[in-house]
Design a protein around this nucleic acid. Structure first.
Lengths: 235, 235
DNA sequence: TTAAAAACATGAATTTTATCATATTTTTGT
DNA sequence: ACAAAAATATGATAAAATTCATGTTTTTAA
């Protein structure tokens, strides 16, 4: 049986200082703490669903999250990932549009919810937070553009190599060079827009070519420079 | 010989009222007018180039613009379009990153330049403008996500149908249902991420199937509902 | 106006990638 | 612990899309 964990507090939140909330005044922190909600998710649970209206933003206190759209054939397309300290749902909130994507946990996670009114209040009263939001959005937009170009132009093999490197940058490697996130072959396929079988075959090839090692969903990057070349990344 | 045209003024700019600047005070308009620069471009000229630093935003007074990235094989990937009243270059300015894409004119165009200092001043002093920027960025991000899913999941034929509909929505149709922008087959291919020959073949098919009519670079949409079905768009 | 260049067009061959079929392994729930 | 379900794996086939070759038309520049 699972112990009901304690709701985290913003004032003691370890990830706050590396997040968009790092420049928030202690007065504001208290206010957020009082008004925020907190939810505990098991692996694979949906945090919010594409098409719905959103009434605040979600702040990931713990855990890893995938943000994905459902294509016209019902196939999942992973747009991006989020982790501890990241916020999600802000796009729909700020554009005043329905959610363009769903979010689901990749492991057990703790996610806080800050209501719209509070978010808007901070944006209006805290120029530094405001500018951080502009920065996050415009950075994301640049990332999206690069993904568009890669999907449009790179073959599947290069896209897979690239997404392994992306996962490395996002979730980092442990001491044994394992990517610190566990994804199914199908989820990998849903990042790069290919068939699950293609991912399985290409991962085996990468392993045979000594670029990676595989143990179940554990992927070890043993030759990152070669992977970078496979991904055809110049910079 | 070409007459040197008069530089436009923000105070009399017809497109200002439907732009992000619609809520700017007349005092601020004067200020922008004094500090802004203006450039006249012929068709096909580059406004700014990927990788460079940007020191302000560009406001399109007249003309149509493509924003594109160069892929690792040197192939152009069109990310989005902009037209009269739109601003470009704001992503790099706000993220304080190099330009993630280049911009080039699709016809003769007039483009004004507003320096960074002035833009930041407006953002700080005009909450309405500020919020509009947040809204533009987050809307763009939603569009980008949809493009990612389509590129990853839809076959070339559907993507072409969809991009014709996108061009219709962006540039509108004239009284004869012609899309109000002239693109080469190669440029169409560079939107949807395919080979020029594929676009040529598929356009012929669409014509044969009475979905469109073609006269050079003029594309007439004669059966939009059927095109929508071809594009596999539900909403 | 005319030659050169670029864009458009079309068929054939090739490559890439997806789909289908079928095992095998791993995970999950009782 | 065990059956069922899900995920992984692999080969064969099919479909999708690109590349290459070549010819025609249109545009551009001298």
């Amino acid at each position: 049986m699972k112990n009901k964990p304690e709701s985290p507090h913003c004032s003691t939140c370890g990830s706050r200082h590396k997040s968009v909330f790092c420049s928030i005044e202690s007065e504001e922190v208290k206010e957020i703490d009082n008004i925020k909600g907190c939810n505990f998710f098991d692996r694979g649970q949906v945090i919010f669903h594409e098409g719905n209206r959103v009434n605040g933003i979600y702040c990931i206190n713990k855990g890893k999250v995938k943000i994905y759209q459902t294509g016209s054939e019902g196939k999942e397309q992973i747009i991006r990932f989020a982790k501890e300290g990241d916020i999600i749902g802000y796009r729909a909130l700020l554009s005043e549009e329905p959610l363009s994507a769903s979010a689901a946990t990749l492991d057990d996670a703790v996610v806080c919810f800050i209501p719209k009114s509070q978010v808007l209040k901070i944006i209006q009263n805290n120029p530094s937070f405001n500018f951080k939001m502009l920065k996050i959005l415009s950075h994301e937009l640049g990332e999206a553009a690069r993904i568009i170009t890669d999907l449009a132009q790179k073959p599947v093999r290069e896209r897979l190599a690239e997404s392994l490197l992306l996962l490395k940058d996002t979730f980092e490697l442990d001491e044994d060079k394992n990517i610190q996130v566990k994804l199914s072959r199908e989820e990998l396929a849903n990042i790069i827009g290919t068939a699950t079988e293609s991912v399985i075959r290409l991962l085996s090839e990468f392993k045979k070519d000594k670029l990676i090692d595989i143990d179940g969903r554990n992927i070890k990057l043993i030759n990152i420079p070669a992977l970078t070349r496979e991904a055809n990344i110049i910079d």
